[in-house]
Amino acid sequence: MSDSHANDMLVVLRHSPHGSSWLREGLEAALVAAAFGRGVSLLFSGEGVMALLDSQQPGPLGQKGTQPMLEMLPMYDIDAFWVDVDTLRSLGLKQDDLIFPVAEMAREAFPDFFQQHQLILNF
């Protein structure tokens, strides 16, 4: 990630991989922004944390899974991943349960974190 654009954009993901297309459409926005040379941070909060669980499968509805999208984010120079640690705890999850290491952030730190980004999109 180029440092000059490190804090361009924050994408907040608040929906689980299934039941709606919010997560996928949020990830698509992140990918497009990265393709346009913007630095992108991702914050997984609420049910969005479930996107980070291993072995999420597409399932019988024929929707594309989101795990392959997540795994290709580093190829687009997206490597700033944050997880809402309060959600993580409330769901009884640990770092070991996630598909890759994700930095933990407490909700008290959200306002300052949001302030650091020029553009914030919520999904």
Partner: peptide
């Protein structure tokens, strides 16, 4: 989502 609410007003949808 109700059980996992977070401070939407900080940056959430109007």
């Amino acid at each position: 989502m109700k059980t996992l609410s977070w401070p939407r007003r900080l940056a959430g949808p109007v």
